[in-house]
């Protein structure tokens, strides 16, 4: 397990040459990408270096009272990020997103950490934080996709929704077909990755473990657990976010809110 090859500072610097090469191509083709590329490289380096130190510190302290606030903070940032680029939303969905992300992450993450991996102590930061982080990254994208899809579907089908309401449909009956599309849009990337894993790509986590010296058979087992847990939390998160959000599209008269009606 300790057959990993360390990367020296010199080797780290070498990898930057590749960025410079890409930058040169960008300058040559006038893509205007040099500045964001350099800025992105610097940010990634600084952020990862800092998180390396922070994680080392947290792993050493390894206290539940520290781990839970950190995970909650991660959930908060993820929910803000998930709702930031969603357009056409007639209200601020950040709290619904926070609840959906936190609930789905905690339910699935706790089962994986405490029951399946079962480290000692059960809340081991070295296990919990990376696992929760991986779930969060996926939930965040899925929830953003679901929300965006739900609002764009309903925006495009205002007449149909109102027609169903006129038949006597409840708000849920009026939007259920669009809600279903939103949930499947959120889950599609996860389902696709379940289909092609190992055939088209080796996931980052598995690659990392193999590079760190773990046997491929063992790395595969971890990867399988991770993918299943991601699928479970994504499904839960998507369902929660649409259930929490659809009601906010209706007035107390069970009519669509006016900001959705205007084109």
């Amino acid at each position: 397990m300790n057959g990993y090859i360390p990367i020296s500072n010199f080797q780290l610097a070498l990898s930057v040459i590749l960025v410079l090469l890409t930058g040169l191509i960008s300058v040559f083709l006038r893509l205007g990408l040099l500045k964001p590329l350099l800025w992105g490289t610097i940010r990634a380096f600084v952020q990862l270096t800092l998180i390396g130190y922070v994680l080392t510190y947290i792993f050493q302290i390894n206290r539940l009272g520290l781990i839970i606030p950190i995970i909650l903070l991660m959930c908060f940032i993820a929910s803000r990020e998930a709702t930031r680029r969603v357009s056409r939303v007639p209200y601020n969905p950040a709290w619904s997103a926070f609840f959906s992300i936190t609930a789905s992450t905690f339910v699935v993450g706790s089962i994986v950490v405490v029951v399946i991996i079962a480290p000692d102590p059960w809340y081991s930061a070295r296990v919990a934080i990376p696992i929760f982080g991986m779930i969060l990254g996926n939930s965040m994208n899925a929830i953003a996709l679901s929300l965006d899809r739900m609002y764009s579907e309903i925006h495009a089908h205002v007449d149909e929704v109102e027609q169903l309401l006129c038949f006597g449909a409840s708000p849920w009956e009026a939007v259920v077909r669009y809600v279903q599309k939103a949930v499947s849009a959120g889950m599609m990337p996860t389902i696709n990755s379940l289909m092609v894993v190992g055939l088209v790509s080796l996931p980052g986590m598995m690659t990392g473990q193999i590079l760190a010296g773990m046997s491929p058979q063992l790395a595969v087992r971890y990867q399988f657990v991770v993918m299943i847990m991601v699928a479970a939390s994504v499904a839960m998160g998507c369902v929660l976010i649409v259930i929490l959000s659809y009601k906010q599209m209706f007035t107390s008269d069970q009519a669509l809110v006016e900001s959705l009606r205007k084109n």
Partner: peptide, 19 residues
């Protein structure tokens, strides 16, 4: 209740909505 209202007082839009 709005649902009951709309089954009693039913609106038919100018543009026919077909599913």
């Amino acid at each position: 209740p709005p649902q009951e209202w709309r089954t009693r007082v039913h609106y038919v839009a100018q543009k026919p909505i077909i599913f």
